[in-house]
Amino acid sequence: MNNMMSDKKVIALYILPPLLLIVALIYIPIIMTGYYSLTQWDGIGQMKFIGLDNYKELIKDGMFWKSVYHSFLLAVFSVISLLGYLAVSLVLSGKVKGANLLRKIYLIPMLLSSVAIGQLWLRIYHPSNGMLNYFLSFLGIENPPNWLADPSIVLYAIFIPIIWQYAGFYILIYYAALKSIPPSIIEAAIIDGANPLQLAYKIKVPLISGVIKVTIVLAVVGSLKYFDLIYVMTDGGPNGASEVMASYMYHKAFRSFNFGYGSTVAFSLLFICMIVTWLIRKLTNSSEEVQY
């Protein structure tokens, strides 16, 4: 029995194809990105090793830091919106009729492609014919800003569809976690005289703290590497006002054909994601896991 299930040839047959794929497509490219980031290269011609010159340039590159700032701004927004999703899930997981249907409706935008969402929201923000200005005109707002052309607004205008896209995802996760709390704990708390607010704040939220930590990491890292809607809706514009790290990398590599410098941005993106993940894990681990 054990001989058969520890036959090296059979094991290799099963594990090697998938393992080789992720090594070839994920891990080797990461190392290569690190190497390319030390070169000057247009992707086709001769590659020239230039040491840390790209990183020296990166430190002085105002546009890069602007894109870093925008990515972190999105991360902050995403984490704040988690509070809203948690509140909604707390209500939804109570005795709400139709909760199952509601959480499915919330999820629909997440299943659609970023191109479809981006193109739809371009129309929603359309100055003369969009849904947003149409509703605003009912409220008496006749001169709304040009949402996607105004550099001081465009970034926030793109945050809205990003939040729209992922709201259902986080509500779904919180809802599932809240539903898995044993009813006996809730009943005991009610017998002890806890009101609904105390029940939510002192019992339910601490019990799902593990899941909340996971969602914070997902939201922050997901924001830092975010690309799709930015690329589809504004392509980082106007004039870099909505550029984020991933879109900046894409422009450097596949528009300017500066593969070396693009790799420097890409490697910094990876580095920043890793550091931030580690930091969040460390910061949230101090509080002890709640057992039940």
Binding site: I22, Y27, P29, I30, Y36, A246, Y250, F259, M274
Partner: peptide
Amino acid sequence: VLGLFMVGLMIPVHSTLIPLFS
């Protein structure tokens, strides 16, 4: 090996894109 697969979840696609393209 399981660890390699799990860490793969966190890798931003964009940090692999240039080498994949070349």
